[in-house]
Every structure is written in C-alpha cells, then in structure tokens.
Design a protein around this nucleic acid. Structure first.
Length: 369
DNA sequence: AAATGTCACAACCGCCGCCAA
DNA sequence: GTTGGCGGCGGTTGTGACATT
C-alpha cells in the first residue's frame, strides 16, 4: 500500500519545459534511446522526473508527431472510435498516426465534446438527448417565421429524438405558435425529394423567392436511412412511418431491428455491439453540409445507411477502422489540405445546425404515438 | 484601451496493470 | 502469494492566447 512516488519531489523542476531542457532530452534520446525513464533524467542532466520526461517526449518532442489542426477525417475517426472504445485515448491515438493520446483527449474535451453537446448528443453514450440540446436554438427557431417551416427537416431528424422528449418540447412550444398547415403541406411537397447524393442541389426545390434566409435553415436534414422518406403519399403516412421507426423506449436505442445501421452494414452481429461500452447505432448526421466537402458528407459517421455512396473511398466502418495498422505510415489526413481549409466556424455550423429544427405545434406527436 | 470571459493546450497527478524479486 | 518498481493511461488543472464587451 502507499506506493512511493515515482520520483523524488524535492529539487525536481515542474511546469513548462524550456528549449534547453528540450534539447537535452532530444539529444540524449537520439544518442541512447530513452531506456529507463526513471534513470533518464539523471543521465541526461535534467532536473525532471522520469514521468515528466516521458510525457514531454511522447506528447511533444517525438519526431513523428503531427502538429496542427485535425482534419475532418481525423475528427470523424476520433468520434467513431470513441463511440466504440470510449475514453481509450491511447487506443484511439494508435489509429491516428502522428497524433498523441493527449492531443486527442484535449481535442475531444475542448471541441468535439462541446459540439456533440450542442447537437443534443451525449458525448459519453453517443445517444441523442433532447435535454442536452440548446433549447434556446429551438425557441429562437423560425417558428415565428412560418415561411421557413420545413417538415421534411423535422421528420428527417426525428429518429434522433426521443418521442417523449419531443412531446415535451412540443408542449413547451405549442403555446407560442400558430398553426400554419398550409406552409407545412407546401414545404412537404417542396422538400420531400431530399436527395443526399446531391447536396448542392438541396435548394432546388425552393422557388427563388423562398430560399431560406436564416443560415440555420440552410442545412437540410436528409435522412440517409435505408427507407427513403420520399415520396410519401401524405403527411400522416410520413409521420406514421417515422414514428414506427423510432423506439418508444428511450433507452432502447441499441440494435433496433427496423433500422439498418453502420454495424449491420458491415455485417457485424448485433450482439457484438454489446461488447463495447457505447455504440452508435443510430443516425448521428442525417444532413449534408452545404459548404463542406462532399466527400466528408457522404462519409459522415453514424450515418444510418447502406447506400452505395457511403461505401466508397472512406469506409469508416468498424472493420475498416480496426483493421488500420497502428504502425501505418500513411496519415489519415495526408490529403486533407483542402478539407482543413474549412474554417472552424464551418465545422461548428455543420454540427450545431444538424439538430436545429422546428416543432410546429400542429404536429401533435401524441397523435402518432 | 482595459477588463473580463472563453478557449486551447501543455503538463501534472493519481491510479492501474504488468512483471520481477 | 506478496510486494514494490516501472511504464502507461485517463482525468484534471494551470496558464497563455485570443475574443468579446
């Protein structure tokens, strides 16, 4: 019990490393290798503990470390691996050549995690949670501007939302809105042909005078599930189909039989998912980004689809990810220059808008449950 | 221009598993 | 079987940079 500290505390420097210390460490390891971390500092003439040296080397000084922004591909890989592995940062880092566990951990905690929270997705379980949504974005949504109602967007996102919570949100909102069935039906007809293959044509169905003006509205949520949403005969049928696809039990997201998911697409046995802490088996991203690279969008992870476009050059399925050799010398973002040119705002916009939707109160969810 | 808030990142801390004595 | 050394991992913190008011 009570293990002794890994190093003497007295006389050992802490805090940021100086260039001189870095040089000593680099020179020593280049000449002798790191060997025993415990004895390294003494041999290298450093007044640091071995742990500190190892951390500095592994996280910063190692020559194969890739600095700079994470590419979209890297980000996608991180999210997907996290959904499989949880906070196993070292395991995730092993799949991202040049990235350290510390860097990935920081990136997750400072960016991805917050982004998922804004999307209403629990970053721990990767499950959608309406209570994590920024409700202000809903309350401030264009419900007050009925010309921007977009039923298909609402319906496309519905599989992400627990109907019980959706009902709550509907209740909250119902007292503040007027019924505008004419707009609903109009938009239903205008938007029912939401083709994920043609993100740049997403506004084709809008008459020129009805192009969305709110940036939030510029991102249609087009589900890519195996059951195409359109064309539907009528609104009721559309809603009914959607509700039937949604598990009534908020905790029953795992392995829905009615939904072909990424895992099934990769022929993973259903019970295989239970071997992991948390697993994605629903559609995270059902939309295409109007400004982002199409390749990214077609390969957005957690797409609950099995369409041909998702199995192209970037198959981030479970098997493909895990089969990536950890010693691979080909960085995942080796061709990501253009992708990296997208701004952080665009990434934020892309993610934060995914779950921004409107809930018109005439859509009484109770009727369909 | 200054104050305040937020973000990103490097580094530390403590725990855990492995292994040898 | 027990103990202690060691490396590794994940959570957390401190701080400088940047943004906003």
């Amino acid at each position: 019990m009570g293990r002794a500290p890994c190093c003497e505390k007295n006389g050992l420097k802490k805090g940021p490393w100086t260039p001189e210390e870095d040089k000593k460490l680099i020179d020593y390891i280049q000449k002798h290798g790191h060997g025993s971390w415990r004895t390294l500092p003494k041999n290298a003439g450093l007044h640091r503990c071995g742990k500190s040296c190892r951390l500095r080397w592994n996280n910063y000084l190692r020559p194969d470390i890739k600095r700079g922004r994470f590419s979209f591909e890297e980000e996608e890989t991180i999210i997907q691996l996290h959904s499989i592995l949880g906070n196993k940062w070292s395991a995730i880092a092993a799949r991202l050549p040049g990235r350290t566990d510390n860097e990935i951990k920081n990136y997750w905690n400072t960016r991805i995690r917050k982004r998922l929270l804004r999307m209403g997705i629990d970053p721990v379980t990767h499950s959608p949670r309406l209570d994590l949504l920024d409700l202000s974005s809903i309350l401030n949504s264009p419900l007050y501007n009925p010309s921007q109602l977009d039923l298909s967007r609402l319906l496309g996102i519905q599989p992400l939302v627990n109907p019980e919570l959706l009902r709550l949100a509907t209740t909250l909102l119902s007292s503040q809105n007027e019924n505008r069935p004419e707009f609903l039906l109009q938009n239903l007809h205008e938007n029912q042909l939401c083709n994920p293959q043609l993100p740049n044509d997403q506004f084709a169905s809008f008459p020129p005078n009805q192009l969305p003006t709110n940036p939030i509205q510029e991102i249609p949520v087009c589900t890519t599930s195996t059951t195409p949403w359109a064309p539907f005969l009528d609104e009721t049928q559309l809603l009914q189909t959607n509700v039937e696809k949604f598990p009534s039990n908020p905790t029953s997201f795992s392995c829905p039989t009615s939904q072909t998911n990424l895992w099934q697409h990769n022929e993973m046995p259903c019970n295989f998912q239970e071997s992991f802490v948390s697993l994605p088996n629903f559609s995270y991203v059902g939309s295409d980004h109007p400004t982002a690279d199409h390749t990214l969008l077609n390969n957005s992870i957690f797409q609950s689809n099995n369409n041909s476009s998702s199995s192209s050059s970037h198959d981030f399925g479970f098997t493909s990810v895990l089969s990536t050799p950890s010693s691979s010398t080909a960085p995942l973002n080796s061709s990501s220059t253009n992708i990296n040119s997208s701004t952080e705002d665009e990434r934020d916009s892309y993610c934060s808008n995914v779950l921004k939707f409107e809930i018109p109160d005439l859509l009484d969810v109770n009727e369909f449950m």
